[in-house]
């Protein structure tokens, strides 16, 4: 018996809404009835975050978004590929395509930056490649200390999030090749979390270290680096990567957002050794997005 001849289309839509965006897209190919059911607003309303209207309402482009995308499916994919500015331009919002979960980038202006308001240390240029009105550019500092605080209640629940520092370098930079910076991601008030160390600026002549496996072969980690570093000896550091939008990113850490009732999550970047200076990094923001989502 052909399921599409006996089940009403809204019942098929209901079934499809219980799958995933990927499944729904595949199902459009099955037959015309499936296509119509899989493209219905019933389905994509379920894949959009339950509070998406509220989020969109804080965006300057809210009215144009809801009028230019009459179908929820089109709105869904638009939000996957085109982050929008929300909350008065302090954050960007997008959807993770595979799950429909919420991704945010917090503008650097919202961070607590030591010496951030002292123009001889930090300046706030407006860059065409930045989504936000201002980016944070470090002139010079000894005490490198940045903290972003984000309310977990705005994030998708039951989700493992990764926090990424989104940055690039100015023409002259110093202090990032020799010194590792410490990343920490933790819930405010819960004590500090796992600490990660990273080398933001990998010297061009530095090669990843391969290791003897003891079975006659060598192996090399592909997304993390073992490096020999004068101050620290042999350490494993995460690698930064090009985002394709003119910025680089590096993973600072991860956390599990259960129900959004853990208060604020703190993402911190820190380095201080007493006498060495740093300068020449430009920070757009910190992005929080679901981890371990197959892409």
């Amino acid at each position: 018996m052909d399921i599409t001849l006996i089940l009403p289309e809204d019942c098929i839509s209901h079934i499809i809404s219980l799958t995933s965006p990927r499944d729904a897209c595949r199902l459009t190919v099955v037959s015309p009835v499936f296509k119509s059911a899989a493209e219905s607003d019933t389905v994509w309303e379920m894949f959009l975050p339950s509070d998406y209207l509220e989020i969109l309402s804080t965006s300057v482009s809210a009215s144009s978004l809801t009028t230019s995308f009459s179908k929820k499916k089109d709105l869904y994919f638009h939000l996957c590929h085109n982050p929008i500015l929300v909350s008065g331009g302090t954050m960007s919002f997008a959807l993770e395509k595979e799950s429909g979960k919420k991704c945010y980038m917090i503008c650097a202006r919202e961070f607590a930056i030591e010496w951030g308001n002292t123009p001889s240390y930090w300046i706030w240029p407006s860059l065409p490649e930045s989504m936000f009105a201002e980016a944070a550019e470090l002139k010079i500092v000894w005490w490198f200390d940045i903290k972003a605080r984000v309310e977990t209640k705005i994030l998708s629940s039951k989700t493992n999030y990764g926090a990424y520092l989104v940055f690039k370098f100015a023409e002259t930079r110093y202090g990032f090749k020799e010194r590792l910076v410490d990343f920490e991601v933790y819930f405010e008030g819960s004590g500090n979390g796992e600490r990660r160390r990273a080398l933001l600026d990998l010297p061009p002549n530095m090669l990843p270290l391969s290791q003897e496996r003891g079975d006659g072969w060598m192996e090399i980690e592909m997304d993390e680096f073992f490096i020999e570093n004068g101050d620290y000896g042999k350490v494993m550091v995460p690698l930064s990567r090009e985002r394709g939008d003119g910025w680089m990113e590096i993973e600072m850490g991860e956390f599990f957002n259960e129900n959004g009732d853990d208060g604020k999550v703190v993402c911190s970047v820190f380095d201080f050794d007493g006498f060495r200076r740093k300068g020449g990094i430009i920070i757009q923001g910190i992005e929080l997005r679901p981890e371990n989502s197959p892409c």
């Binding site: 052909d2 499944d23 595949r26 199902l27 099955v30």
Partner: peptide, 20 residues
């Protein structure tokens, strides 16, 4: 039952005529 399946598998599973 349909999650993770390809269209052809789903057609076979539910005897769906492909009208495209």
């Amino acid at each position: 039952m349909v999650a993770g399946k390809m269209p052809e598998e789903i057609r076979r599973m539910f005897n769906i005529e492909n009208d495209f």
